[in-house]
Nucleic acid binder design. Sequence first.
DNA 1: ATGAAAGCGCTAACAC
DNA 2: GTGTTAGCGCTTTCAT
Lengths: 338, 338
Amino acid sequence: MDKRQITLKDIAKELKLSPSTVSRALRNHPAISKETKELVRDYAVKHKYKPNTLALQLRTNRNNTIGVIVPEIVHYFFSTVIAGIQDEAEKENYNLIICQSNENYGREVKSVETLLDARVRGILASQSKSTEEFSHFQDIIDNGTHLVFFDRICTGINTDKVVIDDYAGAYNAVDYLIRSGCTRIAFLGSNPHLPIANNRRMGYEDALRNHNISVDKALIQVCDTIELAREIVPVMLKIAPAPDAFFCINDEVASYCLQICKSAGYKIPQDISVCGFTNSYITEMTDPTLTSVDQHGFEMGKAAARLLINRIKGIEKKTGIVSKVIKTKLVVRNSTRN
Amino acid sequence: MDKRQITLKDIAKELKLSPSTVSRALRNHPAISKETKELVRDYAVKHKYKPNTLALQLRTNRNNTIGVIVPEIVHYFFSTVIAGIQDEAEKENYNLIICQSNENYGREVKSVETLLDARVRGILASQSKSTEEFSHFQDIIDNGTHLVFFDRICTGINTDKVVIDDYAGAYNAVDYLIRSGCTRIAFLGSNPHLPIANNRRMGYEDALRNHNISVDKALIQVCDTIELAREIVPVMLKIAPAPDAFFCINDEVASYCLQICKSAGYKIPQDISVCGFTNSYITEMTDPTLTSVDQHGFEMGKAAARLLINRIKGIEKKTGIVSKVIKTKLVVRNSTRN
DNA sequence: ATGAAAGCGCTAACAC
DNA sequence: GTGTTAGCGCTTTCAT
């Protein structure tokens, strides 16, 4: 192991040329003669010369790395976003350093440090649920590094972002539930200081109001994990009159909710409709299959990466902040009435 | 944007010292006086000096990056492995560059190129299903870069690897199915040139033989995607006598298999038992919940990263190849009889 | 206890 | 058309 890579200098010495000539030949500089170019190139190919990225980067004082901070990697939505980011970054020869915060504020702060130490060109971030203090994100900007938030944006920081239309996604789903005859629709949400959770709740409430259904606080709960679902759903089923629909913040909660309702003797969707959010592959694995709001994570990843790269390259002209919205789509399956 | 970071030289000039003194002060060199050290350090902290990683790396001609090649990122098992790798790499301050091959040979080759161009210290790889030619992996080793395979190892290359005990995992699962009364057990497998698929099949066959059940080729099929499951499971159900159990190569196939059997009127697990492989979260979302073989992806990721890092650091003494095996565990749920 | 100089691999201004 | 030199930020002999 640790074989030394061949360098420009090695080639120069071997070919009795100067390093600069070799450099120019390889980069197809017009001033170099055809013969020299061929000579150099043949030698380079033959000896598998690879330019030392590190040296290039040191000279230009910039690397081609993008940092990504997600709450979790083992997560359908976020892994989908990462795939989208990767797809777009690869096209432009950017590498990715991926950090996960594990929904933990401290690890999020540390991830930012790691990425800044690595001198990434820019950072794509989705904040953890437990983050309520934002100076680490401000540090990124103060450091002169580009920052784009996606999905779980941070309202305290003034920078580019890519989000889905959470309000409309929720509104449309709840509207659909109402039109199918549901009137007691529960909302299993998340921490309201997350804009995604708050916007969906507003969409939910407005859909109810527009159909002259009053908002019942008892039907609105923070319930964004399967553990909470196990606890909260049975309690909600005991409310009189019982809910005839659950609109859930993610597919995992929806899936558990569905199971719990079934175990309690309710027929899905005849007695109770259940709707998830994300449209992950588990929507096809539940029984009945799960109606869900598609978040288009891949598109979001691509859009966020695109925006960041445009900022890095200075292509994005807009001087103020850019806010991109990805449209959601309700995918109706069998867990909701028609 | 693009604010210049403060450098050693800047500090030196400001403090009227030489760069070397500043460097030594920061690195706590014994020859530097206490006063100078404090002076320099205070200044560094105050001005948020960060050593330029690129320069360090250029000097030592080595970066602290590990490359990872997986078939897919949006995949429970692989994302879990990545999380494990990340966990271990982070401890030692290694960054990750993640590439996905999308089960495509060409992209796998390109991923290797990308990682070698980035001069990663080592590569962790799980090969794509379509790979039948291995010279790109040999290039990694020839290039002097460490290589560790995990899960989908490449038998054509002589290097370190981390696998699960596929044979034992399959044997135990099938043994369990037989003990619960099943005798017509189908195997929904994968391409036999993948060792994981072949080993599981051998475990399956040996379990049958040890119980004096003959191996019926009609009950063995390559069926490793949901698309194939939709096609193949209905056909297998028409075989007479019909299978009374399905042992599946992954949880997605198992989940679909379960649904198809239910739709065909079979009771699960009374008529047909279904067992998956991976033990992903979908095992809790199917109805009934899915018995599955836990692959311990997180542990595998940690073990693979550990092995690679030990090789990089020269800690791993063994000169031959190291083969680490992660033990699987059958997790019994409600899709199999007792 | 501190400084000067060289060098990691590469490129670009400036020779000739 | 090609060579010389300097410099990116850092560390490390070798001086003093």
